[in-house]
């Protein structure tokens, strides 16, 4: 590239970017700005619309459990608790399944089976949420209730698994276990598994072939190789996939909307009827909400958004420190 036959000229170590490079830089930069622009527009719009409600409620928005914008008594404590409990249950269901399936596809399955499983997972990611909702409501719920009853009978000493009425009396009737965070969590968990599996599988399959072979050559078993090479390498993918799934779990609307029985008190008994979710609340209430009510719903969306921002920020810090993230970062 540089001229070798002109020795007297001092060679500049800083190369001027080529025209294609500066164009490339400009284009990608524009894309970045556009993306941020769209995203900020959504965020800004949320904030502006939420402003009216937040001005009225102030700080109590975060600690109040009731949701009654009509009487100016409204807060997000119970709703947020429900949202997060559903998401956590979903993650408990989804993450082990997703890691297992991703490893199965990338490490165990071969040939036709592998590509079949890959396209199955992709397909599953597109099952409309309303189908999951109906399935959860009409099929899964009836089959999960005995499990809930069993757990609450034998694990009642764990506060989360207790199911009791207001006076502390244990409940065993089937109707006490319907429409719970547990059931919603399972359904949402199943919904997010495909997303998580796809991302994780992609990360696992990128683990360096040399290291895999090294591990195998040193006599490790397949699992030993997975544990020492694939999983450490794919940690970024595991976290990235989990976060992507968590995002969907927190924001899932229709399936949760169809399953839960919304309540506006914090319900620590996850197996018991009644929970809530921000996006389900929006879907339930937007139709009949006044302007102020809509503003309060937006504020709820905004808080969820900020919480995810924090969670994601933490996660991306971890990803950046992991190997697959650090190598190029």
């Amino acid at each position: 590239m540089s001229k070798i036959d002109a020795p007297p000229v001092r060679r500049s170590l800083v190369s001027a970017p080529s025209r294609s490079d500066s164009a490339f830089k400009a284009v990608t930069f524009t894309a970045g700005v556009t993306t941020v622009g769209i995203m900020l527009a959504v965020g800004l719009f949320l904030s502006i619309r939420a402003g009216a409600a937040l001005k009225v409620s102030g700080f109590s928005f975060l600690i109040e459990q009731q949701w009654s914008p009509d009487t100016r008594v409204f807060g997000i404590a119970a709703i947020l608790f429900g949202t997060i409990s559903i998401a956590i249950i979903a993650m408990c269901v989804a993450v082990p399944l997703a890691i297992g399936t991703a490893l199965l596809i990338s490490e165990v399955a071969v040939g036709r089976l592998k590509s079949f499983l890959v396209s199955m997972v992709d397909l599953m990611a597109a099952v409309p949420s309303v189908v999951y909702g109906l399935w959860g409501l009409f099929f899964l719920q009836a089959n999960v209730i005995p499990v809930s009853q069993w757990i609450s009978t034998y694990f009642a000493w764990i506060p989360f698994f207790r199911v009791s009425d207001a006076s502390g009396q244990s409940l065993t009737e089937a109707s006490a276990f319907t429409s719970s965070a547990f059931i919603a969590g399972i359904v949402v968990g199943l919904m997010v598994v495909p997303t998580q599996t796809s991302v994780m599988r992609e990360a696992f399959s990128q683990a360096p072939i040399g290291e895999r072979e090294g591990a195998l050559a040193l006599g490790s078993t397949r699992w030993g190789m997975i544990r020492t090479v694939v999983i450490p390498f794919g940690r970024g993918g595991i976290i990235g996939g989990t976060m992507l799934g968590l995002g969907r779990a927190l924001g899932e609307t229709i399936a949760v909307y169809m399953i839960i029985s919304p309540i506006f008190t914090i319900n620590w008994q996850l197996l018991k009827t009644g929970t809530n979710s921000v996006s389900a609340l929006i879907a339930l209430r937007y139709g009949e909400a006044s302007d102020f009510g809509l503003s309060a719903l937006m504020a709820a969306g905004l808080v969820l958004f900020i919480i995810t921002l924090i969670v994601n920020f933490t996660a991306s810090t971890i990803v950046a420190r992991s190997r697959s993230g650090a190598e190029t970062g």
Partner: peptide, 25 residues
């Protein structure tokens, strides 16, 4: 929502709840 009541979305949801086995009562 109050006491023992369940809330379900849509006519489909409430009718569906009542018509299930666990909806007895």
């Amino acid at each position: 929502t109050y006491g023992n009541a369940k809330a379900q979305s849509g006519s489909l949801g409430v009718a569906g709840y009542v018509s299930q086995d666990y909806g007895e009562g």
